[in-house]
């Protein structure tokens, strides 16, 4: 996709962005995500057990409920893996050191503390 000019992206008002649709069409991606018109003020991460469990639930669409993929799936299980290995993999994806199709993009959504908590969560699940 063509990279957008800064004039194009800066002219986008949040209200005009009615869906991923308009956003991706007008701004191109993925740099569009770095140029949000108003800087978000996110709630501080919830690293209580319930908060980490909720965070980990976002891995399940591809890696299976609680990190146990569907029978026959070639996607890696997360449950019962070594916490340091999992954390390192996520850090490598986030830093662009490990090649991926989508995990390098998704890992950028998580802080160091969230990555450590996710790794500990999945390490503690039974295989």
């Amino acid at each position: 996709m063509l990279a957008p000019s800064s004039a194009e992206t800066s002219s986008i008002e949040p209200r005009a962005v009615r869906s991923i649709v308009g956003w991706l069409v007008l701004a191109g991606a993925p740099c569009a995500f770095a140029q949000s018109p108003s800087a978000p003020r996110f709630a501080p991460p919830n690293l209580t057990p319930a908060g980490v469990r909720a965070l980990a639930a976002n891995c399940a669409q591809c890696h299976g409920t609680d990190g146990r993929p569907a029978p026959g799936s070639v996607l890696p299980a997360l449950a019962g893996r070594d916490a340091r290995d999992l954390a390192q993999a996520l850090l490598d994806f986030r830093a662009g050191r490990a090649r991926a199709t989508v995990m390098d993009q998704l890992a950028k959504g998580y802080s160091d503390a969230e990555i450590a908590a996710l790794a500990d969560y999945f390490a503690a699940r039974g295989r």
Partner: peptide, 9 residues
């Protein structure tokens, strides 16, 4: 809101 810098196509 989307996390700036995360995600992509």
């Amino acid at each position: 809101k989307v996390v700036p810098g995360a995600g992509g196509v």
